[in-house]
Simulated scan of single mutants.
Amino acid sequence: MASHIYTTALSCLLLLLLSSFSQCQAQQQQLSPTFYDNTCPNALNIIRDAVRQAVSRERRMAASLIRLHFHDCFVQGCDASILLDESPTIKSEKTALPNHASARGYDVIEAAKRELEKACPGIVSCADVLSVAARDATVAAGGPSWTVKLGRRDSTTASRNIDLPSPFANLDTLISSFATKGLNTRDMVALSGAHTLGQAQCFLFRDRIYGNRTDIDAGFASTRRRKCPKDTGNGNLAPLDLVTPNSFDNNYYKNLLQKKGLLQSDQVLFSGGATDSIVSEYARSSRAFQEDFASAMIKMSEIQPLTGQNGIIRKVCGALN
């Protein structure tokens, strides 16, 4: 009897120790805003300086860095897989259709990483650089700030299976696409507001401006045709927000109310569907939009991160060590 009690007590102790160890492991693998406080205390300043310099040279770069982060997180999680160059073992995401000749900002991330490697070699992941850079790019364009949790690690693989929302998607498809990533409808509408910045290529909106549709303002369509000919100029660029293309504001939503969304995936957010009320709210209140955008960006930046012993810390973001 005494032996049974002893064995039971020992088993319980072992379970308790194992449980504590598992909890400790889980805590170590959680993302934290203080992750680099001891190992690379100047990391955030280094990234911010690189982003500020890039955006000051070219205002459009703010949009590009936000988009780069989005395109990374929606493909096998926020693991910097989008930064990997083609190699004998890597099929690069850079040349996949949604990224080819459009995704940009790689050089800004590499510039920040080079400085980080000088300050604290092998410590800060490219995935974390990308997450912080998206935040700092938003701020540089006049948008909100938020606290980025850190501790992501970098993937050793990339995926050509690019599961990104299409600029031609309808509302139900958009809602479903974001839901599969753990983002709700409000998150989707808020994140779409990143289109208050940046530009789109002509072939992505040509059908919309030449289609004599009822969901587009005729004068707006006419204006956009000037730089997007009917049969040529696929790569010609046009600002997503014609009024304030370089300022992070809520004008994107005001445009939608007036049927002046450039992409189909923009205008469907205000087309008599489930998201009309959210668009109207953001058009009225810049504060509501910016708060929700910051919240949604935090959620997006935590899609399937590699932590703990998973992944690596790349020395150069475009290649494996």
Score class of each variant (00 low, 15 high):
His4Thr: 14
Tyr6Ala: 11
Leu16Trp: 13
Leu17Asn: 07
Leu18Gly: 06
Ser20Thr: 14
Phe21Ala: 13
Phe21Pro: 00
Phe21Gly: 04
Cys24Phe: 06
Cys24Arg: 03
Gln27Pro: 00
Gln30Asp: 10
Thr34Ser: 11
Thr34Ala: 13
Pro41Gly: 15
Leu44Arg: 05
Ser56Met: 14
Arg59Val: 06
His69Ala: 15
His69Ile: 15
His71Asn: 09
Phe74Gly: 00
Gly77Arg: 03
Leu83Phe: 05
Leu84Glu: 01
Ser92Ile: 09
Thr95Gln: 15
Ala96Ile: 09
Ala111Pro: 00
Ala111Asp: 09
Lys113Pro: 01
Pro121Ala: 15
Asp128Glu: 13
Ala134Cys: 12
Val139Phe: 07
Val139Glu: 08
Ser145Thr: 12
Thr147Arg: 04
Arg152Thr: 04
Ala158Leu: 05
Ser159Pro: 01
Arg160Trp: 13
Ile162Val: 12
Asp163Pro: 00
Asn170Lys: 01
Leu174Tyr: 01
Phe178Ile: 02
Ala179Pro: 00
Asp187Ala: 09
Ala194Leu: 14
His195Ala: 07
Gln201His: 13
Ile209Asn: 00
Arg213Met: 14
Arg213Leu: 15
Thr214Pro: 01
Ile216Cys: 06
Ile216Val: 14
Thr223Val: 12
Cys228Ser: 07
Thr232Leu: 15
Asn236Lys: 10
Leu240Trp: 02
Asn246Glu: 12
Tyr252Pro: 01
Lys259Glu: 14
Leu263Lys: 04
Gln264Tyr: 06
Leu269Arg: 00
Val279Asn: 00
Ser280Tyr: 01
Ser280Ala: 08
Ala288Trp: 01
Ser295Ala: 13
Asn310Phe: 06
Ile312Lys: 01
Ile313His: 02
Lys315Glu: 15
Cys317Asn: 04
Asn321Ile: 10
